[in-house]
Design a binder for these strands. Structure first.
Lengths: 198, 198
DNA sequence: TTTGAATGACTGACCATTAGTCATTCAAAA
DNA sequence: TTTTGAATGACTAATGGTCAGTCATTCAAA
């Protein structure tokens, strides 16, 4: 009949083609024309695959998060203690290699705060739930290995939230000079309470 | 020679005139024309007092925060325990009476995440520092009254960050069904560690 | 007391740019 | 040759921001 393209693949191709554009500019400062030109397609084509700029950002984040998770799993497997794992788990917010992904993540949170559409919220919920239960698994494991107390499981939510809160503060204010230090301090403080006293 | 207006006052007047507009719409969805019409001035006049829409939001938040603080001080004085005070301090994120201010606050954080201009960051830093040291004062007082351990002072940062993080999560995801409960749970958990054992 | 020059406040028409649409074109398959 | 999905970019409507001109008030000089 006519050309049939793999819609999902093309969507990914377009998104990844302007990855760097999104790294260097905030979504707000990018025009659809620029994005289309960078991806090497017409403006109309963009609208064949995405409803708006934000969805392109989501697609990029989605793809990058998959790679990020693989690396994270790798790094986690090299840690033996629960505390070490939690620290590695939290290093997304400050480490050098996730700098670009973090740039996108900022935009991402900004969008979900100002335009709470259903899709965006579901998207965020999925990711948040995924990482939350991942961390919960790590803590659970620590409990089973008798490293930390059973009540520690109730602090998972707080650790996650504090990480997020510290990150937001480090971006939106000048109050946090050293995020890595700040996050590790708070994890240390939490583990003081969570660790089994011998 | 000519008319001299109180610039600061007029700025406040314009901002407050479209307060409700900002409550009901996100900054993104408001046009300068609409804002100008609502405030009853010409579009050009807006630019005599503000550089962009965001600055109008800041002005509104500034004024409202002043009132909010008075009420908060009032409420705090009625609490006798440190734990009670911290809970009252944190209720901004979920209580009914601050609903509108919270709407603005969301926009506010979104802007500081996506357009980190110097002014915005300074503005945020001032407020964050102000509230942070306020809470620190409350904790300090609790330590002096021998209610909580001296080490508690190190958890102020974590409590603040976790509140913020939980709030962000409640807005941007569907994971937190009851923010009030979640925040109070985490404060209770923290106080379990902070309180002096008798 | 009158007057007109000086000045600051205010304005909305105007311009450049943008998001989003859609009629048209293109190319492959039948 | 015909059919049909994909791609396109000219077009429209709306927006943010500018700026040349208008207006109102004041006050010094006549």
């Amino acid at each position: 009949m006519a050309i049939i393209v793999d819609k999902e693949q093309k969507k990914r191709d377009i998104a990844l083609a302007c990855k760097d554009l999104f790294f260097q500019n905030s979504v707000k400062d990018l025009s659809i024309s620029t994005i289309a030109a960078t991806a090497g397609v017409g403006k109309g084509t963009i609208y064949n695959y995405f409803n708006n700029k934000e969805e392109i950002l989501f697609e990029i984040v989605n793809v990058l998060l998959r790679d990020h998770d693989i690396v994270k799993r790798e790094k986690l497997s090299r840690e033996s203690t629960t505390k070490g794992k939690i620290k590695v788990f939290s290093d997304f917010f400050y480490n050098e290699e996730d700098l670009e992904l973090r740039e996108l993540y900022k935009d991402f949170v900004a969008i979900s705060l100002s335009s709470p559409s259903k899709e965006i919220k579901d998207f965020q919920t999925n990711h948040a739930t995924y990482y939350h239960s991942w961390m919960k698994g790590i803590v659970q494991e620590g409990i089973e290995k008798n490293e930390i107390t059973p009540e520690s499981i109730n602090l998972v939510q707080t650790i996650c939230a504090a990480n997020e809160g510290l990150f937001i503060a480090s971006v939106s204010t000048n109050r946090i000079e050293n995020l890595e230090r700040e996050i590790n301090l708070h994890i240390d403080a939490m583990f003081n309470f969570m660790e089994r006293k011998k």
